[in-house]
Nucleic acid binder design. Structure first.
Length: 254
DNA sequence: ATGGCTTGAGTGTCAAGA
């Protein structure tokens, strides 16, 4: 089973890239973030024609998350239960006995900002919810744009980013709280190239200079981590015309 | 130096991303 996640930064703009990528890679599941569209404009028909069913929780302009799967999507859940949030950032469903949670963690804007406090509250609510979910679903994966670079090796210039948004200690602690639930960072189960990132700044030729961060992650419950055979970041779509600023991350389960 | 790109909304130019 191949699982993938991709922040597409507008599905309307990126649909051709997504369809091409699905055709080449044929994942069983693809999680999307930042669809930036309402449900009524979501391209269900185009995806179905490509062999993928989809569930989506979206809104105008911002946020929006979707789960695409070749198999049936059961037990669909939108949002974090008990956490009131106008912003569409979570969608969960089960495919072939695997519980999949697609998450778009708030950016946070700047350390100390109101949006930063929201990010930390949001992450605490996600973690509290997942503490229960991992009890009920031994085969569980949390995929998405975490907006957290977990360690200095996930940052192109750790000195410049030290303590900054996406790299602050409170954010990294929140990430470790997710790991403390028993979840494993699929990417770090394997030897990886140095300076591997999943996002690069659009400005100042960020991609060509590899000025990036690894902020998109696939976390796996122990039973899935045990059967994970590979995990990689696919930089190919980032090289296309009008790319998303994020690259897809894919994990292969045995 | 708080900008530099990109998107959506909407037709001015700004908010938001990371």
């Amino acid at each position: 089973m191949k699982l993938a996640t991709w922040n597409v930064n507008s599905l309307k703009v990126r649909l051709p890239h997504v369809l091409d990528w699905l055709a080449v890679n044929r994942p069983d599941v693809l999680c999307l973030q930042e669809t930036k569209t309402e449900d009524k404009a979501f391209p269900y028909a185009e995806l179905l024609a490509a062999g993928y069913r989809a569930v989506h929780d979206g809104q105008k302009t911002y946020n929006g998350v979707a789960l695409l799967a070749r198999g049936e999507l059961a037990g669909v859940q939108c949002g974090i239960p008990g956490f009131a949030d106008e912003q569409k950032r979570v969608i969960a469903a089960s495919v072939d006995g695997v519980r999949l949670i697609c998450a778009y963690v708030p950016n946070g804007q700047a350390v100390g900002a109101e949006k930063y406090e929201y990010k930390l509250r949001w992450l605490a609510a996600l973690t509290d919810w997942l503490r229960e979910e991992v009890q009920h679903h031994s085969r569980l994966a949390l995929l998405g744009d975490y907006n957290i670079a977990p360690e200095d090796r996930d940052v192109h210039d750790p000195q410049a980013w030290r303590g900054q948004i996406l790299c602050s200690e409170a954010e990294r602690t929140a990430f470790r709280q997710l790991l403390a639930l028993g979840l494993k960072d699929a990417f770090r189960l394997f030897e990886q190239p140095e300076k591997s990132f999943s996002w690069w700044n659009y400005r100042q030729m960020g991609f060509r200079r590899n000025h990036g961060l690894r902020i998109d992650h696939i976390l796996l419950s122990p039973s899935l981590a045990d059967v994970c055979r590979a995990c990689q970041i696919d930089k190919a779509p980032r090289k296309l015309e009008r790319p998303s600023d994020h690259a897809p991350v894919m994990a292969e389960l045995g």
